[in-house]
């Protein structure tokens, strides 16, 4: 059994285990640290920085920072909320996120995060990038307009499916998700039952012809904000 590590989050003592990240230990203690690129069952990634906390006064990504004995972690502060809001707003403006007709609305982690953070308007100008929609796969649609480059599909494909369907292509602002076939997703060995087809936090990789099958009111975040499962302790049990 791993050694216990005691530290505090917003003054509350948390018992973690050596080798855990702050995000993991916090979730087990029913403390929600907002995050997008982190996903249970996938290796830590640390790209979105939405889980940024102050560890002994220094900004760190909670999803990649291991717990440390005696660490003082600040999570739920006005300053961090503003920082996270700015990061999430950047994700919105650098893509083409039209929630009003997106089938992921109500089940979208990015949208739910914006609601949780109370984002009403973007402080940055919209970039309106030109991106593509790949509908070549018979059962899965890859809609890059909505991609936030979290790499969850890349990791799920490699780590859970044992495949290499997705990876990053390009650099800087040109970076985007590519597939390992010149003909598009339809030319890959991606299956609709793959974990990679379910890992997307936004509406970028969706199962075809499901659309709006779940009515408004019964969607994941219709009645409770994102993070509620962790705060209620359900995530710890699961």
């Amino acid at each position: 059994m791993s050694a216990k590590v005691a530290f505090t989050i917003d003054g509350k003592t948390v018992q973690g285990e050596q080798g855990q990240t702050i995000l993991q230990a916090a979730a087990l203690a029913s403390i929600y640290i907002p995050h997008l690129c982190a996903m249970k069952g996938l290796s830590p990634w640390g790209s979105c920085r939405v889980c940024t906390v102050l560890v002994n006064g220094r900004p760190q990504a909670a999803c990649t920072t291991p717990v440390a004995e005696g660490a003082v972690v600040e999570n739920d502060t006005a300053e961090l909320k503003d920082l996270r809001s700015s990061l999430v707003e950047m994700l919105f403006v650098e893509g083409n996120h039209y929630c009003m007709f997106c089938e992921k609305s109500g089940n979208c982690e990015l949208q739910a995060m914006a609601y949780r953070l109370g984002i009403l308007a973007m402080r940055h100008p919209y970039m309106f990038p030109v991106r593509t929609l790949d509908a070549s796969h018979p059962d899965v649609m890859v809609e890059l307009n909505r991609c936030i480059l979290c790499a969850r599909c890349i990791r799920a494909s490699q780590e859970l499916d044992g495949k290499h369907v997705f990876d990053f292509v390009g650099r800087g602002s040109h970076r985007h998700i590519g597939v390992n076939a010149a003909t598009g997703a339809g030319g890959t060995n991606l299956k609709v039952t793959d974990k990679a087809a379910e890992a997307c936090p936004v509406g970028s990789i969706v199962k075809k012809r499901v659309g709006f099958a779940v009515p408004i009111g019964q969607r994941l975040y219709d009645s409770k904000p994102i993070g509620s499962a962790i705060e209620s302790g359900r995530a710890a049990k699961g």
Partner: peptide, 14 residues
């Protein structure tokens, strides 16, 4: 044009 067909009833009502 180019949008998936199941999206259309929700999109065009706008």
């Amino acid at each position: 044009q180019g949008r998936p067909f199941w999206e259309v009833p929700v999109l065009v009502q706008r």
